[in-house]
Amino acid sequence: MQQVVSRDVVVGLKQGLHARPADMLAREARKWQSRIELVSMSQRVDGKSILEVLTLAAEEGTRLVVEVTGPDATEALAAIVRLFDGNFHENDETAVNTAGRTTTP
């Protein structure tokens, strides 16, 4: 069953959608059967390709549309949006770092 679903997301990462989150995104995307694409003002890229995601050069505040087509589209879309909403766990690590710093004199 082909279904197309999409959602708007905003890049919340301080350094934009850089290599590590792009890697996480592509990795997550590849878990799903559906075609997953990211659409910006100027281009449409394959969410399963880290190289293509990087070429978006999406900085903090960039608005993107996640468009998913395929049998498992709803679940896939939810998973991808979750990454954006959770800021790709970037904040967790910042927290770890900050915590680490406080213990060091």
């Binding site: 290599a19 792009a22 890697d23 990795r27 590849r30 399963k48 390709s49 880290i50 190289l51 293509e52």
Partner: peptide
């Protein structure tokens, strides 16, 4: 990330 780029399907 390097690994991901190297194995990038595209």
């Amino acid at each position: 990330a390097h690994l991901a780029m190297l194995h990038d399907a595209k």
